[in-house]
Nucleic acid binder design. Structure first.
Lengths: 118, 118
DNA sequence: TAATATTACGTATTACGTAAAGATT
DNA sequence: AATCTTTACGTAATACGTAATATTA
């Protein structure tokens, strides 16, 4: 079970339709179908009942739906905190005596930022 | 970012050592190293400071550590609920008039279970 | 020099797309 | 017949292992 599979699963659960779910996921419909089948096989549980053109969650599917929501929420939140966050990363502490600090530091720091490119 | 990568990351964070983390993860040490690098590249953040033989979490690493713990906990809980749980799956409701139920149902149901193999 | 991490590169797994077939309305 | 899903199969991406190369205590 991987994160990308859970995203596919959620797309199907929310659209109730493999074709639309595939479009939303930017992959072909058979590939998405395959991943859902892989998930079902790994879990040993059918996740959807294929009723003609309707796709409905099974009991196991509903259980996974709950978990997937919680997992993906945590994942996206964590990604949001981390992804290329410029506030994270190495810090530099600079000390200076009070007399010169207000005069020199602003210009010097701006120069540093410009050279580093941040 | 995928679940298997988060497990590798946790292994390194907990052991503070790529070699031991690889052993615990049952993969070779270079492969694990590569996955950590992939993660760092995707996130645009260094996750560990390699200080000679010590490996220490960066600030971004600590942020991911929190998230990874929550994510993996949810994942494992969800997997535990689902994986080949025989209680899940299709249910069959059987009705019978009170008079015959206690006499016939036990044997018939046992027979069904035996034929289905459950 | 011993212990550890990274780089280089080939192999094997596997996710994906296209085409064809099956199933349902 | 039209719409949707699954099956079949080839391709491309990539996770992994082995070997060689840094790097540090």
């Amino acid at each position: 079970m991987e994160i990308y599979q859970l995203r596919y699963f959620l797309a199907v659960a929310e659209t109730g339709n493999f074709t639309k779910a595939a479009q939303r996921s930017f992959i072909s419909q058979p590939s998405l179908s395959q991943q859902i089948l892989n998930l079902e096989e790994e879990l040993g549980q059918k996740l959807f009942d294929r009723l003609g053109r309707k796709v409905v969650l099974t009991e196991a599917g509903n259980t996974l739906l709950d978990g997937a929501h919680r997992i993906i929420t945590e994942v996206d939140q964590t990604l949001g905190e981390l992804k290329s966050d410029p506030l994270l990363g190495p810090r530099v502490s600079v000390g200076a005596i009070p007399t010169v600090a207000p005069f020199f530091l602003p210009g010097v720091l701006a120069h540093c930022r410009a050279r580093v490119g941040s």
